[in-house]
Design a protein around this nucleic acid. Structure first.
Ligand SMILES: [Mn+2]
Ligand SMILES: [Mn+2]
Ligand SMILES: [Mn+2]
Ligand SMILES: [Mn+2]
Lengths: 217, 217
DNA sequence: AAGTATTTTTAGATTTGTCTAAAATTTTAA
DNA sequence: TTAAAATTTTAGACAAATCTAAAAATACTT
């Protein structure tokens, strides 16, 4: 598989998962910052290789083979992200770009040994689950902080927005995965929240609360 | 720089080093298992980018910029090889293929941190020197085992042939870098050697002796 | 249900990197 | 110093991946 093919497969998985729902040419083009005509060309190529089901004018969905491929790439991407943070002192806003390159390295032994070196991590630095070698993959039980009622308590387990800007904002405010958050108050006017985290009190906007995943407890 | 360009630069360095000696189209094609016409095309592209001096019908040599590029790639290749052996339990005959992929990953921080993680190694698993961040690069003081006189003693510091077959042969016979070798006897007929290594006595062919580097002591 | 807007595909072009076959140049050897 | 041999370049083609512009199909709206 070429790098371009792998990137398309990953994007299709990202947009549609393992479902048979057809993903539109336009949606893929948008996500990959390319043109719909390029997507059509690739859709045909991937269909030839039996990685996607392609229905003309309707879109594509991953085949079983396509899903397996996507999970293998995602596994590599997330393991590399863990490596960069745990072993090479990268911050969680720096890892994605490099992992985008490393995920295409072809060596089964490399990824198995990396997994072992990192002690078989279950989640990547952004809280996303790492598929097992055989493609096992379960989303964590989580919800957006904004969905929690007042006085509820939850552990921070992930981020929805993975942009550098958002991640650095969280760093600056010392909000990290693993911390427990209690909702002290909700402002009806703008849906902002007063929260307690790590002994501190903090006022956060709705935009923040709709991009932080917590596990209710 | 594209991956193909990087591979050409690396090959040209491999064949001609930093000298201004012109490397022929044919030699490059042979080394890269491609066709001379493809090499000509690439020679022009690299000349446009001022990475090589290209003299029509004569060959190419690296510019200063080209040498700098080559050393950066070689640095990455060799650091990754050390990583694979030291951190991921690869054997020295398995690393090259994967390092050929990893050497093209673009991230300055990645390679600097890797260097630190490995404790700033000076040599790769095959005894080849690792260029510094600034491109400092000195060949080690070494000679072929076959060039040593009878009764001389030397420390094994590198291999000339880096094929899997040769490296596994050395493993099988417990000949590793760092071991001290004493030449007990030389057979005139076939230039085979009787050597002492690690307390053992061993008979090795001239083919082995002309592919093992030692540092005389 | 027809007409308009949107989406998707096709057709044709471009870039990178490769190839084969033929032409040009250089090297070797009589 | 020519002729033959070897090397190198050119010309033209091809595959992958992309683009633009135009045509075709689908979706929306009145
Ligand atoms: Mn990522
Ligand atoms: Mn991630
Ligand atoms: Mn190598
Ligand atoms: Mn090496």
């Amino acid at each position: 598989m070429t790098r371009a093919e792998e990137n398309y497969i990953k994007t299709i998985f990202h947009l549609g998962g393992a479902t048979s729902q057809l993903i539109s040419t336009n949606a893929i083009a948008e996500e990959m910052e390319t043109k719909p005509s390029s997507v059509t060309d690739m859709a045909k190529r991937l269909a030839d290789k039996e990685l996607v089901n392609y229905v003309k004018y309707q879109g594509v969905s991953l085949t079983v083979k396509g899903v397996k491929t996507a999970l293998a790439i995602i596994r590599k991407h997330r393991l590399w992200e863990v490596f960069l943070v745990k072993k090479l002192d990268f911050t969680w806003d720096e890892v994605h770009e490099v992992a985008e390159q490393l995920e295409h390295i072809k060596s089964e032994k490399l990824i198995d040994q990396l997994d072992a070196l990192l002690d078989f991590p279950k989640y990547d630095p952004h809280g996303d689950p790492i598929p097992s070698k055989t493609g096992e993959f379960k989303e964590r039980d989580k919800q957006l902080l904004s969905e929690l009622p007042v006085h509820a308590k939850g552990v921070c387990v992930g981020v929805k927005d993975t942009s550098s800007a958002f991640l650095r904002f969280l760093d600056k405010n010392k909000i990290a995965l693993g911390h427990t958050i209690t909702i002290l108050d909700k402002e009806d006017f703008d849906d902002s929240l007063r929260i307690q985290i790590d002994g501190r009190e903090l006022q956060i906007s709705n935009q923040i609360a709709t991009n932080l995943y917590v596990k209710k407890e």
